[in-house]
Design a protein around this nucleic acid. Structure first.
Lengths: 206, 206
DNA sequence: CGAAGAAATGAATCGTGATTCAGTCCTTTC
DNA sequence: GAAAGGACTGAATCACGATTCATTTCTTCG
């Protein structure tokens, strides 16, 4: 019975799969999901286009896996921040800075995960990601409320506001003609933190 | 010298062009730019696909025109709000409610204008739109600062935060599992207004 | 080494939708 | 009514990228 894949062969295959995911993620981070083609991933991974299909049944599944891995990493980082020491406010602030720092560092990856419209097959992953992400923020805000640091509020909506505000300020097209990035981050995070408090003339009915 | 287009013919042509833009916009509002095909626009306007090209040199230019018209309308509405009576804070609040109301009413149009990635040829229009939009918000905020109602701040970044917060809260995928829309609007607008004030423990360094 | 498969290759195929264009229909003018 | 063009049509063409698959190359093992 000649030829049965051995450990060495399987190791090479594992490496191929890893390289494909790695390069696909690199492309996503550089240009977003939309700019990724099977051919470009294959070339970056130094394989032929057809070979990609030995490892992933379709482009959608490859991208879904990329999404899942990247998202899991982000959520984990955020969760770690959330579990740190300090008041809820301090942890929220730390989490938002971390979010900002990673978003800026990751190029388009953050945008791709949060906002880029993609294959419906991937939207499912995105929903899970957002739920997880938002849940962490919501959890922190709820802790703050429970501790009396923050006033009661619709945490889901507020969490969405925060993600949107930071995303737009740091990643959106408006982020161009802005001061330097550090200043923008500080401004945006302060904006969000203030938004969680009840101070200020809220009910000037207009 | 037989046949020279007359007023009647030209009127029919103007009507064709108008219908094409109208139907294209309807499709964009319903499903976003991505879902618009030349064939679908032509069918909706009751013309043959080829005829579209007698009125617009390419799909990109048709969509750019659609974008421009829709954006101009939005900016005008916002500008009107901004020119109303009242304190800067009141006008900001009114403008944000107007923004929210229109965004919710327009279906995907607001998302298409603000966020949907499209042909690079259209990004140019979007940039002008955002500039105009953001400029109005910035103007209001700056008035508020001049009047002593608001503390000095990086208005460009803050304006971006507001657009992002409202957009995410009202249009984003997170907007699903939320309370009813009125509540979400109120929560998001309050969040943004508070963000403009300096109250609250901003510098709890964490 | 040589047979038996497995893995990899990349050119060909397919599907989708924008764009073109030869043919047809309409308007205008005499 | 008929000639002269313009406007309209929609099937054919093109472009682009995902997917397939016949062929080639590589591995394993007797």
């Amino acid at each position: 019975m000649p030829y049965r894949p051995t450990a060495r062969t399987q190791a090479r295959q594992a490496d191929n799969a890893r390289r494909l995911l790695e390069q696909a993620q690199r492309l996503v981070a550089a240009q977003g999901f939309g700019a990724v083609s099977i051919a470009s991933v294959a070339e970056a991974a130094e394989l032929a286009t057809g070979t990609v299909y030995r490892y992933f049944p379709s482009k959608a599944e490859l991208l879904a896996k990329v999404f899942e891995r990247a998202a899991a990493r982000e959520v984990e980082v955020m969760a770690t921040q959330a579990a740190a020491e300090g008041t809820a406010t301090q942890r929220i602030r730390a989490a938002l800075y971390e979010f900002s720092a990673r978003a800026l560092r990751s190029g388009r990856l953050a945008w791709a995960l949060l906002a880029e419209p993609i294959d419906p097959a991937i939207e499912h992953e995105r929903l899970r990601f957002r739920r997880a992400y938002s849940a962490i923020l919501q959890g922190l805000i709820e802790e703050g409320i429970a501790a009396g640091e923050l006033p009661p509020q619709a945490t889901a909506t507020v969490a969405a506001c925060i993600v949107g505000a930071l995303g737009q300020a740091l990643l959106g097209p408006l982020a161009d003609d802005t001061e330097d990035q550090d200043t923008a981050v500080r401004t945006a995070v302060d904006f969000c933190i203030r938004g969680l408090y009840r101070e200020g003339p809220i009910h000037a009915d207009a």
